[in-house]
């Protein structure tokens, strides 16, 4: 990757941002923020489950009607899925190529080790964990392939899915990874996009806040099933 970057012609505009390290970081930041925006809305939407089975299933059905009558049923969902997929692919592409470039920049390691921040050091493996989780989550809650529920009703899928303790464990692990990913990723994106001013403290605090809210917000649902608040 070192060679590729050095041979790249120079960045001349936003269309050629991918040619430099900072440009790739910016692509990673913007795509990350797009996915974060979805994740926050997804988390808030999930909380409708506390208003009961009927209202939750109605909410899920309404998601398919967004944009009607201008759009056909579920078109909005497919547009959103396309945008998120493009964002995810670009995010992973930037992460992989930059990581390779970074590893090549330190061919000989130090004998004496020094520790970095915890959230920071989990970005790469945490990202892989999240990718695997996305696949599992789609198979579980979107297609229902691995879900024990007999009907296609979202409410039943959730209660049936989280009646399996190991599935709750998978979701917990993934949400910890998501929390740490946002913890470092959100404020890192702010820095990459040059939003931090005199101090980085503001965005750091904001990122930790968002990370905790998203992590706890998502985990409320499976643990409510576990403790019988939702059944």
């Amino acid at each position: 990757m070192v060679e590729t970057l050095s041979k790249n012609p120079r960045v001349t505009g936003f269309a050629t941002l991918h040619r430099s390290t900072i440009g790739r970081k910016m692509i990673m930041a913007v795509t990350g923020l797009i996915m974060l925006a979805f994740v926050v809305v997804h988390m808030v939407g999930n909380l409708k489950i506390f208003f009961g089975e009927t209202e939750f299933n109605e909410y899920a059905a309404w998601l398919r009607t967004i944009g009607e009558p201008a759009l056909h049923e579920a078109w909005y969902l497919w547009i959103q899925r396309a945008v998120l997929t493009v964002a995810l692919v670009l995010h992973i592409w930037a992460a992989v190529t930059l990581s390779r470039h970074d590893v090549n920049a330190r061919p000989v390691k130090y004998h004496a080790k020094r520790k970095g921040g915890y959230a920071t050091s989990t970005m790469r493996w945490g990202g892989v964990t999240l990718l695997l989780f996305i696949i599992w989550h789609i198979l579980d809650m979107t297609t229902g392939t691995v879900n024990p529920a007999t009907s296609h009703e979202p409410y039943e899928r959730i209660t049936a899915g989280f009646d399996q303790w190991w599935n709750v464990a998978i979701y917990t692990l993934a949400m910890v990874a998501l929390c740490l990913h946002i913890w470092h990723g959100l404020w890192s994106a702010a820095n990459t996009l040059g939003w931090n001013r005199a101090t980085t403290a503001g965005f750091r605090t904001f990122a930790v806040f968002v990370a905790l809210v998203v992590g706890f917000g998502f985990l409320l649902v499976p643990y409510s099933v576990v403790f019988g608040l939702v059944d």
Binding site: S6, N8, D102, R114, G116, M123
Partner: peptide, 21 residues
């Protein structure tokens, strides 16, 4: 800024991951 970053990349320095080290 364009030239210095281009040279920085060409030399083979890694990218910033905002670790603050």
């Amino acid at each position: 800024v364009l030239d210095m970053v281009e040279q920085m990349d060409a030399e083979g320095f890694g990218g910033c991951t905002n670790t603050g080290m």
